[in-house]
Amino acid sequence: MAMAASRSLWASRAASYLKISAFPRAFSTVLKDLKYAETHEWVKVDGDSATVGITDHAQDHLGDVVYVELPEVGASVSQGTNFGAVESVKATSDINSPVSGEVIAVNDELLEKPALVNGDPYEGGWIIKVKVSDAGELNSLMDDKKYSKFCEEEDSKH
């Protein structure tokens, strides 16, 4: 219960103001073969295994990542729900899983080098690998074009 309470603390509508981008920023990188969630995670599917990380856009807005909280291998995750957290200097942010399934690997390197999430969000900064239980869920995610547009619209709201 304590966990749920602390989580709810981080979620706030006011928080969306942190996304304000008052200066023209360079376009964040978006990769073609990945799928994207509205909560700014990417997923790369290979057979029934999916690698999950956070997007370049997300890491850019969060700033320097100083800690990544990883789940245990074997834990189950479900689409749209939280499985870990990234801590930047300014804030704690939940990471949601874009797909449901079982965690089959976690990127232990992030414990020593959390900055990989900033420097290499789509490769060295991957967070977990999931054995996908429902491939149909992937259809609800965005492709690169949709996601780029989604980010632009979200930024322009502020």
């Binding site: 928080a15 969306s16 103001y17 942190l18 909560t39 700014h40 997300a58 807005h61 969060l62 939940d94």
Partner: peptide
């Protein structure tokens, strides 16, 4: 919405 960019320690501090 809760997620990566939907949290804000500082915004909460402002509220506090």
């Amino acid at each position: 919405m809760r997620g990566l960019l939907a949290c804000a320690t500082l915004a909460r501090r402002a509220a506090a």
